[in-house]
Write a protein that binds this DNA or RNA. Sequence first.
DNA 1: GTGAAAGCGCTAACAT
DNA 2: ATGTTAGCGCTTTCAC
Lengths: 343, 343
Amino acid sequence: MMKSRRRATSFDVAALAGVSQSAVSRAFSPQSSIAADTRARVLDAARKLDYVPNRIASSLTTRRTNIVAVIVGDMANPFYVQALHCIGRSLQAQGRQVLLFTLDRDASADDVMRRVLQYQVDGVVLTSARLSMRMTGRSLDRGVPIVLFNRYIPGHDAACVRCDNVHGGGLIASALLAAGGRRFAMITGDPGATTSQDRVRGFVTHLAQAGVAPEDIAEACGHSTYEGAAAAALALFDRPRRDWPDALFCINDIMALGAMDVLRARLGIAIPDALQVAGFDDIPQAAHLSYRLTTVAQPVDAMVAEALALLHLDGPARHIERAIDRALPGHLVVRATLRPPGG
Amino acid sequence: MMKSRRRATSFDVAALAGVSQSAVSRAFSPQSSIAADTRARVLDAARKLDYVPNRIASSLTTRRTNIVAVIVGDMANPFYVQALHCIGRSLQAQGRQVLLFTLDRDASADDVMRRVLQYQVDGVVLTSARLSMRMTGRSLDRGVPIVLFNRYIPGHDAACVRCDNVHGGGLIASALLAAGGRRFAMITGDPGATTSQDRVRGFVTHLAQAGVAPEDIAEACGHSTYEGAAAAALALFDRPRRDWPDALFCINDIMALGAMDVLRARLGIAIPDALQVAGFDDIPQAAHLSYRLTTVAQPVDAMVAEALALLHLDGPARHIERAIDRALPGHLVVRATLRPPGG
DNA sequence: GTGAAAGCGCTAACAT
DNA sequence: ATGTTAGCGCTTTCAC
């Protein structure tokens, strides 16, 4: 028993309820002035016809789709999955939805932005991807705000929300020093991203203050992936055993997992006894018993709240933020990959 | 230097190009009949005005949004993240996008479906969530196809794409038997989901054929989470050491990781020497060196392709599949959590 | 091949 | 509080 092929419209409901079509519209907008019993009659008729307001049609007139585009550059990194989940939840609680755009490694964010603009989204959240100034300008000029999440590009027009990476790098350095680290090494991420650069800078600067010369810090690029970090770790340990590092900072957790796994399985290195390890992000896996990774926790909830706030989704006064940079502090989470200080 | 606040419309482009508005529309639809030079003039004018076709407006007339809703029930399970990623990529390659709906644990899929319908999506993919028949009927009757991904509900109206879980459970049983398992245990997932039930059934049935009585198989529910599985594993081993299981099947990989972690860290159990472990799904982490988990790989790409095909997104003949059940075979991936047979 | 005109389903003034 | 009317930006007959 199939219902009528055509979906009911507000006109159908109006006819059945014996009111005008605009009354139907009002019945479905919480703050409009309509008599309680009129609304009741309308909602009743709507139920009978299985009527659901068409948000796509309404967005044509309101000029708001209540859709936010989220561009995710690296779904293989649980940190971004976590961020996406948090963004989705928050938005959904506001009656909005995420339109997801995935960006395969080295795909152009500009290309995907062209498509984003076709969907008339109310805002864009961009994670782990680079967007040209030209494209950013196009979006901002059309009134579509953009916020870069966990990515900061100096001089860039878009708003940006991130963790204070320099500070976080310093936290790791001081923890590793306090735990007795002597020969330092680090595995870096995307060399072009300030996220990686800043964490490295905070780390190196802090170590320098403690008398560790930057050139004494071994370094390898892990390209922000588990596999890349595994390769980088082996490269760092490709030297006489007495020169092996005893303190390793991985610019993010997913790389720390890759490094720990390969160093333990292939070289039999004991963590934290022979090597202390720290990461960054505090992804769920960092807490798992196989790793118990010391790391800097990014304040994801606060970052997401801030990012969405900067989009100014509420109110009719669509203000577009430009060149804003919000760096929120992370905090050290000490787990078992560091020896207890003075232990 | 800010451009005009108002976004250019096809009328603006038409005026600049000296053609009618419908010509502009045609210039942007690949298959419409329009002279090459007219199209060129239009595209040129469009570029000058930074015009982008409004897909929301066009979907009003075409009755297709080119948006597919994906409802994700468990973002903490990497398998679903993988599926989401794959769906997003495939859809994007077809010029479509994913509208993401997240479902917090125990939230009602019916509630979220009500919102889905407002967005006039062309189809719905539902992962790890239960949808009432009533709501399913409403959606199908309105011409919005639904496919359940990795979930099968007997007698349900929606189409369903899944792995052959009974077969997969059998593969694990036979691998565990061949590797010398004697005292079997399993950690189950959501007790109400056929996904878990079928894997259990395949496993138990196969063992029974080899002479292992079902009542000799220890069982605990891990609720499909890492933490739940850790607790379940401890419960299974809360008995005299000589009665400890030597072969453990976890209904999915994420639970296998939780079980392995806690059994190794808390009870010092050696895997695979003292205990052989197998999972299901083949999530990326299963291959990591800390686990090297033997598991059944779900054919995610094929499943996604099949799911999208059942949505019949192409062509004007919007056919709605009902009560379809497609079970694709998974395959065993042998890693280090099983002892080599005859070794 | 091209233009004119009629909607798609809704919201938002504007009257009443 | 309610109805009338004019769009929102586009696609699609239908003439020419």
